[in-house]
């Protein structure tokens, strides 16, 4: 579903990813773990197409398409969802308006009918309820005045609404207390655990992995995957630290 080959990327001329290769099939959940500064977030941003992240070599194929050729919104329309480590505040634009615009833009590109205001609101309320988010928050400006945990939950509500094929979730567990972690974990399983979908979890800690069991765990260090294994690798990392294993 997603095939990354020998990916090199840099920011401001500074190489961050240095030959990363990874293949994710439909129905799989992969976790990328690694020390701070290893390039985890960069990987997410490169896949999402953030300006300023320049790919200097390698390729990324998503569902048979050259992902790197697509503009960020086209990647979203193709079914890619990037959950941000630091969701952005957008004063003056309400959550509802934002999400409806987003969803209908994606649907339009897939030649699906736009949802009416009422239809959309029903869907949004439903997702908010499932993630235990106050429906009132849908009316507030995007992420403005939200706590760290609320922002992360809002990312999951968005994911539920757009229902992507492939989710890259960057440090989705940070800023969450244990209850919220469970809710978010359940959400990921509910929305993304399906034979035709896949997930790439980017995380520093294994605690989210207690809720979302990965099929594969990869260690990212100095811009490359240095080791891959099953779910047990995450526990080993937690016990022994990155220094030993990443080397």
């Amino acid at each position: 579903m997603l095939v990354i080959e020998n990916l090199h990327a840099e920011i401001d001329g500074k190489p961050i990813l240095k030959g990363l290769s990874l293949s994710v099939n439909a129905g799989e959940v992969h976790a990328i773990m690694g020390p701070n500064g290893a390039g985890k977030s960069t990987l997410g941003y490169v896949l999402g197409g953030r300006p300023g992240y320049e790919v200097t070599d390698g390729s990324v194929t998503f569902a048979g398409q050259d992902l790197l050729e697509l503009a960020p919104h086209e990647r979203a329309a193709a079914g890619l969802f990037l959950g941000f480590q630091y969701p952005v505040e957008i004063p003056g634009v309400s959550n509802v308006q934002f999400l409806r615009e987003a969803l209908n833009a994606q649907r339009a590109s897939r030649e699906e009918k736009a949802l009416s205001g009422a239809e959309f609101l029903k869907l949004a309320r439903e997702e908010a309820r499932k993630l235990d988010m106050d429906a009132e928050m849908l009316k507030r400006p995007v992420n403005v005045g939200f706590s760290g945990g609320e922002k992360k939950r809002n990312e999951m509500v968005q994911m539920g609404i757009v229902n992507p094929k492939f989710a890259i979730l960057d440090e989705t567990d940070s800023g969450l207390d244990i209850d919220a972690l469970r809710i978010v974990g359940d959400g990921i399983n509910r929305i993304m655990r399906a034979p035709e979908k896949a997930v790439l979890l980017i995380t520093h800690y294994q605690r989210l992995l207690d809720y979302v069991q990965p099929d594969f765990v990869h260690v990212l260090a100095d811009g490359r995957i240095t080791r891959s294994g099953g779910a047990e690798l995450a526990h080993q990392l937690e016990r022994e630290g990155y220094a030993e294993i990443a080397a």
Binding site: P51, P72, H73, V88, F98, A102, V162
Partner: peptide
């Protein structure tokens, strides 16, 4: 804000 623009694009809204 470039970050807000990218965030919105990443949700599928054309630039």
């Amino acid at each position: 804000d470039g970050r807000a623009l990218f965030y919105m694009q990443s949700r599928g809204i054309p630039r």
